[in-house]
Every structure is written in C-alpha cells, then in structure tokens.
Amino acid sequence: MEMIIKTIIIIIVGVAEGMKVRMSHYENGLAGIAAEYQQFKALLHRNPQLMDTLDVINITNDDVDAAIRREKRSARNESCPIFTNSYLQKAESPRERSLSPWKFVREFDARRTPRYLLKAKCLCDGCINIVTGRETKHLRSVPTHMRITVVKTYKRKLCYETANIAIGCTCVVPSRKPTAGKTAAPKSEKSKKNCYKRPKANLS
C-alpha cells in the first residue's frame, strides 16, 4: 500500500513539473514575440524610411467586425513561405523562421490617435510542417495580441478606448468544439470607452 501511495505521489509530481515546463515554454514564446515587436518598432524609429516599405491598411470607415472580415480576406491573399534551404539562409528574424510566420503592416485610422499603428499579419492559415517545410492545415496560425489605449473621435466626442493590436503569430491546435451547421464568425470584443465632449472653438 505504501509503495502504491509513493508511486501516485511520483506521478502527480511528474505531471506538475511537466505542466510547469510547458507553461515556461509558452511564456517564453510570448516574450519572444513581444521582443520581436519592440525590436522592429525600434528599427523603424532608427530608420524611418523603412515605413514606406510596409503595407498600409486603412480601417477609418470600418467597424470592428468589418476590420476582422478585411483581415481574413487579406490573409488569404498572402503567400505562405516554403522553408527551403535558400529561404532559411536568407531568413534572419524570428518572424520569418517561425512555424507560424508573419509580417508587419501599418494600420491607419483617421479617427484615432495615434493614426498609424504597427500590426502583425499572419502569412499562413495553417502552420509550417517542420519535416516538409510546407504549410499544413492540421494546425492553425493565430495572432497574438497586446492591449493599448488609444483616443478615437466620434462626431463631437473624444473617447479613450482599449485596442487589441496583433504583435505576432503563434501556432495552435484547431478547436475541437462541436459545431452545428456552419461555423459562426468570432464575436468581436467591445472595447471600453470613456468619452468626453470636445469644447467648441472660441471664434471671438
């Protein structure tokens, strides 16, 4: 009986240690994505001319749902890279060598301050198979987000909002939740708003 109890304790400890290792890898992965985002922002700050090489996505007239639909359409038009030897020799940044590779774009909103935000866009629907070097649809590339506060203008109101900005992409197992009929579109998360009336201009 004592041996059985000891064996159970060893198994429980082993499972707990395994969970800690997996969480550590997950946290390190997110930290790496955040570091890549900050490093690229710093690079743009040092070399402003590089901004002209980035695609610009104008979402001024989009609501949140329209922006999600636009992102899905543009993602389908991107070419997922093939990890050949020549590609890997040229790929220098983690975003190019990631199994869910991404690129950076500039998102423009005339009603928002700041008007331009750096944003990541996944290049693949699936992920790169480490054996073949090609995309596999058995896994999914999804964006990793960071929350920031922005100011939006609505008619005569200034509103402080929380915006979710994609800073990179990561590879996940597809959801196994059973769905009836067509898959429902993801619901957009409403951002919190704190609005204030803009003071009228004094013409006297």
Rank of each mutant, 00 (worst) to 15 (best):
S74V: 08
S74E: 09
S74Y: 06
A75S: 11
A75Y: 00
N77W: 11
N77R: 14
N77V: 10
E78N: 06
E78T: 03
S79T: 09
S79E: 08
S79Q: 10
C80S: 05
C80Y: 00
C80D: 06
I82S: 04
I82G: 00
I82N: 00
F83E: 01
F83H: 04
F83A: 04
T84Q: 07
T84H: 08
T84F: 05
T84L: 08
T84I: 11
N85H: 05
S86K: 13
S86C: 10
Y87L: 04
L88K: 14
L88D: 13
Q89R: 15
Q89D: 11
Q89P: 07
Q89E: 15
Q89T: 10
K90C: 12
K90Y: 13
K90E: 13
A91P: 07
A91W: 03
E92C: 14
E92H: 14
S93A: 14
P94H: 07
R95C: 08
R95M: 10
E96W: 10
E96V: 11
R97K: 15
R97T: 07
S98H: 02
S98K: 01
S98A: 11
S98L: 04
S98W: 01
L99W: 08
L99I: 12
L99N: 12
L99G: 08
S100R: 11
S100N: 15
S100W: 14
P101C: 00
P101H: 01
P101G: 04
W102S: 01
K103F: 01
V105L: 06
V105A: 00
E107Y: 07
F108A: 01
F108P: 03
F108R: 04
D109N: 15
D109F: 08
D109K: 09
D109S: 14
A110L: 08
R112N: 05
T113M: 03
T113L: 02
P114T: 13
P114R: 13
P114E: 13
R115V: 10
R115G: 10
Y116T: 11
L117G: 06
L117T: 14
L117P: 03
